[in-house]
Amino acid sequence: MDQKKSYTFLEIKQKMANYCVYQDRCHKEVEQKMWDFLLIPEAKDEILLFLMKENYLNEERFTRSYIRGKFYMKSWGRNKIRNHLKFKEVPEKLINRCFDEIDDQDYHKTLSKLYHNYISKIKGLQLYQKNSKTIKYLLSKGFEYEEITQVITDTAEERE
């Protein structure tokens, strides 16, 4: 039989604190984790309040570290990061406020590097075909079309 272990309220509270200490979490992740414990709504609210009051759960800190991590480690663009944060139900205002975590020069450098790396791997196509494939790739990484065309323009000017 698939029997779930039952925990006391204090044990659950401690488990949720540990869950938040291990890595920054958003409210949605914490609420999903609490579903495992079959808590009554009042208990969930009390635990959420405790986690926020003790600064285990901080949506702005989560958003800032998420943006930094996804950009600097995975080279995601702003659009992809924004969409993933929306999926985690982070408020739009907070997302916009936290995008200052990405330095504009770093953003342009990363985009340029991704462009050059990707386009250099494509063999046997005309330049416009290579550009088309590369644009699709960079859009899928979450970069803005205007930013991508700027990199293409800059690269074309360098060649001349």
Rank of each mutant, 00 (worst) to 15 (best):
E60Q: 15
Q129C: 06
K70C: 08
C26N: 15
F37D: 06
Y107A: 04
V151A: 10
P91G: 05
Q129D: 12
E60L: 02
H116R: 10
N79H: 14
G77L: 04
Y118M: 06
E160D: 10
R159L: 14
D24T: 04
D2N: 13
I102H: 15
R68N: 09
M34F: 08
E158A: 07
E54I: 05
K13Q: 12
F99W: 10
L114Y: 07
D154Q: 14
D103L: 07
T110M: 07
Q3C: 02
D154C: 01
L57N: 00
M73D: 10
V90E: 03
V90C: 09
L38E: 14
Y22G: 05
Y72F: 13
D24Q: 08
S132G: 05
A156D: 09
Y56W: 02
I102S: 13
Y128I: 10
K109T: 12
M52F: 03
I81S: 02
D36V: 00
Q129E: 14
Y72G: 07
S6I: 12
Y72N: 04
M34A: 11
F87K: 15
E54T: 01
N55S: 12
V151M: 06
F99S: 00
R78K: 15
F143Y: 15
E60F: 03
H84T: 04
L114F: 06
M16H: 01
R78H: 11
G77K: 03
K74F: 08
I40T: 03
S120W: 02
D100V: 03
Q129Y: 02
N131Q: 15
T134I: 12
E59F: 05
I95P: 03
T155Y: 13
V151E: 08
I148A: 03
L38W: 09
E146K: 15
V30M: 05
I152R: 01
P41C: 01
K15I: 07
Y66K: 07
E92Y: 11
Q129P: 00
I81W: 00
K136T: 06
L125I: 00
L49T: 13
D24R: 11
F37T: 07
I122W: 09
C98W: 02
K123A: 09
N117G: 01
E31N: 08
P41T: 07
K88I: 00
L139K: 11
N83W: 10
K133L: 14
G124S: 04
I40E: 07
L111S: 03
N58T: 05
V30L: 03
D36S: 13
R61N: 09
L127V: 10
E89Y: 09
G142H: 09
L51D: 00
I95F: 08
I148Q: 01
I119H: 02
M34H: 08
I12A: 01
M73H: 11
E46N: 14
K28A: 11
E54Q: 11
D36R: 12
L114A: 13
E59Y: 05
N55F: 06
